[in-house]
């Protein structure tokens, strides 16, 4: 199996969205590639003790976004990859971000402080986009 799902119960994030996010994360990090098969609903259910409908809902959402394709009787397969930038660009941004995180540490911020700061900047950015 190429991906193993995990569940954060009580996180407030809908279970199907947690599965969607984990597939997208794996796509962004190159852990999942086009042609890879996602586990069947039964396999996911047997491990996580979640509702099979939830797994199918996650896969339908991924299909709707054009990331996977369901082949009846065969399974669900990765169709395309994610990540807007070219690998070199990705490396450059990661480097800059690493330096920024280090600067945060030097300024006395711990990991939680940094996460809160990143979260609030992202919130503000999306609020500006929708405004």
């Amino acid at each position: 199996m190429v991906i193993e799902f995990h569940l954060d119960r009580g996180s407030g994030v809908a279970t199907y969205l947690q599965l969607v996010h984990q597939v997208k994360q794996a796509l962004r990090l190159g852990m999942l590639r086009p042609g890879d098969q996602l586990p069947t609903a039964r396999e996911v259910v047997d491990k996580l003790a979640i509702n099979p409908n939830t797994v199918l809902k996650a896969y339908r959402e991924l299909e709707r976004e054009g990331l996977v394709v369901g082949r009846p009787g065969l399974g669900t397969f990765i169709k395309r990859t994610l990540g807007g930038a070219a690998p070199a660009e990705y490396t450059r941004l990661r480097g800059e971000f690493t330096r920024w995180v280090r600067a945060c540490g030097e300024a006395g911020l711990d990991h939680e402080d940094v996460k809160a700061l990143v979260g609030s900047v992202l919130d503000e950015a999306s609020r500006r986009e929708t405004a």
Partner: peptide
């Protein structure tokens, strides 16, 4: 074994 075709999920079509 594929469970994909067995499960019905009405109400989200």
């Amino acid at each position: 074994m594929s469970g994909e075709t067995v499960v019905r999920m009405p109400g989200t079509g």
